[in-house]
Design a protein around this nucleic acid. Structure first.
Lengths: 183, 183
DNA sequence: GTCTTGGTATACGGTAGCGTATGGTGCCCG
DNA sequence: CGGGCACCATACGCTACCGTATACCAAGAC
């Protein structure tokens, strides 16, 4: 039943809109319609649309960084396994909505300083984690940093390229690439 | 002086808007304002806004594919040099507007089938070119394809990650990565 | 039982953009 | 020199969205 809609619900649904239509698609009236309410309540929680946007960014940033920190403590597995876990976690579309949000936010970041800062923040965290794993694998600090950058960039870039040959082909290619990056 | 604005001018300026604000930013009235005319002439050249959008896509697609074909005929240099030329050409921001257009179109492609098709088209062409260069370098067909995918994806992904350490650092990292990819 | 907290509905005025209509205007061509 | 072609200005009606105002309501706290 869930009659009432709270602040978190607004943000959550707004992220859904973001994933589907990009920043410019998160508009308050459509958002309210999605939640089957009118925008009456929106302006109770948020001063205006920009305030919702920063809230979304904060939610995303802390969510992503939290996820990374949780993953980092995931000891007991080999570095390879943990890297492969990351690959699965962020890319191999277990979670298409999450990927869509990432891409939408990165696009947004090209025009918005605050979005860019959030992205820089999570990138720094993730890159450091991946670099640490490469160091565990025996690489020198510099080399590990470069390798982490290469791997991380590849994983993102890969979702931007459109293969006509289909998803199976992509999975195969990504697999091959990850393997060579771990060599 | 250039008083009159022709179809190509509209498309050109529309691509500028696309680069700056994304697809949703290409709106006909603002576009006309940029060209210092009213939208009167717009609807003489184009039936409606969607028609402009497909025109932009076509222009971009044929432009990119043409550029690739031109580059492919650029013999006389070693494969390494030609690959490094590509890196410079498409990525190392010689041409920030071109990169912005690419990204905006790829974002657009997530929601629009026609944009996706254009992107798939240029990706196929570029991937094949890069794969050919890796074959020249002595890799087997399969390996060359995978390496091309890795390199191409990396170059795109790299522009999505935001480094706080600045552009010099990025250039250094990208250089290192490209070198390991050519090894 | 009434008060407060956390919402929701409705209605309004304003702006931006879309697409249409219609009537210019400068320039080239015959 | 008179079309007509290529383009521009103006004005209109329509819709979508923003933000504000204001009144309402339901549930728990006292």
């Amino acid at each position: 039943m869930e009659a009432r809609v709270n602040k978190a619900d607004w943000v959550e649904e707004a992220l859904g809109l973001l994933a589907e239509f990009g920043v410019d698609g998160v508009k308050v009236e459509p958002l309210a319609r999605r939640l089957s309410v009118t925008k009456g309540g929106f302006y109770w929680h948020f001063k205006d649309r920009p305030e919702l946007l920063v809230e979304m960014l904060e939610t995303w940033r802390s969510g992503r960084i939290g996820a990374i920190r949780r993953h980092a403590r995931d000891a007991g597995k080999s570095p390879q396994e943990r890297i492969e876990g990351l690959v699965r976690l962020y890319i191999e579309n277990v979670n298409p909505k999450g990927v869509a949000i990432e891409l939408a936010i990165r696009d947004w970041a090209r025009r918005d300083e605050q979005a860019a800062e959030a992205v820089a923040d999570v990138d720094a965290t993730r890159l450091e984690l991946v670099a640490a794993l490469f160091r565990e694998l025996g690489l020198e600090a510099e080399a590990a940093q470069a390798r982490a950058f290469l791997m991380y960039s590849f994983l993102f870039g890969q979702v931007l390229v459109i293969l006509r040959s289909g998803e199976d082909d992509r999975r195969r290619l990504v697999g091959d690439c990850v393997r060579t990056l771990l060599a």
